[in-house]
Amino acid sequence: MVTRHPRARSGSAEKSDGSPPPGVGSGGPPWIRAVTLVGAVLALLLLGAAGGMLVGLPGAGGSAAPSAESVDVGFAQDMTIHHRQATTMATLYRVNGEDPSISQLAFDIDTNQREQIGWMQGWLNIWDRSLTPVDGYMNWMTGPEGHQHHGAVPQDENGAPAIMPGMASEEELAELRAARGEELDVLFLQLMLRHHEGGVEMATYAAERAGRVQVRNLASNMLQHQTAESAKMVGMLRERGAEPLPFDN
């Protein structure tokens, strides 16, 4: 301890004595400059190569977000709302229903569609777009086939659908909440079947026209999976001597 103080002072004394710093600068012979230059270039090349590899590493990708009016954004916004009602109905069945097969189906729909909502909300988040529809429903379906099928659905003042196809009304949801036993089994299957059918139009449109491969892939996956699930629900309804609800969209 005693000896360290003087040394520290001697260091500061040297700094303040005005002599120029050693090394780099004007004084060296020409070959020193050449070595410095080669060293600098070598260092830059090495760092450049490292940077190049970093760009190629997983997770380093990224590109521009789809526009607010795009199919990708519209689909993610509207299908989120559509899926939320399905998870609401499935949750009701999981709590109040008793049939093991329907309960298993409800468990599958509930967990699966929640995760798909996560995907769609995640996209909107990272694209910095509104998480919910901002201009009515299904306005992103503006191609030749857009809107022409909406005749049966109530429309808002702009001609856009005020409610998406297949959605259960507040009254129907109240009935579902109150139902028990076999009445609940049939009502749940009927409402969920019509709900699945209602999503087909949006999913088909997005599967064909979304800009992003990931969005087209999710939409077509939904379409195929839900079509098979719908066929299954038709079978389950028939087995219970019930018929699907009319779907006039």
Partner: peptide
């Protein structure tokens, strides 16, 4: 001042540093 070892050392340190980063990234890659 007469024999600029300092400059050479600085260049060597710089190249070694860049080489270290390159080696690390290359290993990860």
């Amino acid at each position: 001042k007469s024999k600029p070892w300092g400059t050479l050392a600085a260049v060597a340190v710089l190249v070694l540093f860049a080489g270290g980063i390159f080696t690390y990234v290359y290993t990860q890659y």
